[in-house]
Amino acid sequence: MGAEAQAGGAQVELEGVRRVFPGGMVAVEEVTLTVAAGEFVAILGPSGCGKSTLLRLVAGLDLPQAGRVRVERAQGRVAYVFQDAHLLPWRNVLANVELPLELKGAPRGERRQAAQAALAQVGLGDALQRFPAQLSGGMRMRASLARALVTEPRLLLLDEPFAALDELTRSRLDEELYELWRRRRMTVLFVTHSLVEAAFLAQRVVVLSPRPARVVAEVGVALPEARTASLRTTVAFNQLVRRLAGVVREWGTP
């Protein structure tokens, strides 16, 4: 694995997926969704609607009661970013980012190099030796992102990754994530409850209903390929956000 990833990503297919938790609570109901290789899809839904469950099903961390989850051409390179950073507090930043490669049995030199490169990409190149407790929330999230990128994932799953951060940091990280995707073209599933975030990042926005999660609308995003901070002030962008808001309201999501 070199620093430059080969282009392309995994393909994801969900077909009539249903997940019921013990006790009868239906988290996901009849979800059918196809994500093309290299596509950036935002999954938009209210809090607690079952978005996370859906993502866990795609990651193979959970199994559906009915339906099929197929992930093709991932080559085992699936990465997951949680809502909070969830770093190992006893490891410094560098060792945290090395972890995935370490668990996959990569040799020490190789994983160190890959971790340094990933950290440089997220702008943490000079915080390698610091411990998570010594970092700001934004920096912790960057480290968490680097930990996901270090395996050069072909499928990147993000579960409201920047929701706990302040608005400014969140916008900046959104921009950086978009640039990363533009360069690497891995498949991205990005779960969020923020209309603005979904509109800014995705090529396609999938809107889910309140629990149990169902796909209630799909909105294609026809914004320019190059997206920078100034995009958020354009008319086209705001029209899109308004349109998403309309869809969300129509389906009764808060």
């Binding site: 866990r56 990651a59 193979g60 961390l61 085992g76 699936v78 990465a79 997951y80 949680f82 909070d84 969830h86 190992l88 972890l99 995935p100 668990l103 996959k104 395996t151």
Partner: peptide, 14 residues
């Protein structure tokens, strides 16, 4: 143990 971290280890085939 933090459940997401258990997930992470599972995902990377630990």
């Amino acid at each position: 143990v933090d459940p997401p971290l258990e997930d992470l280890f599972r995902l990377y085939g630990a």
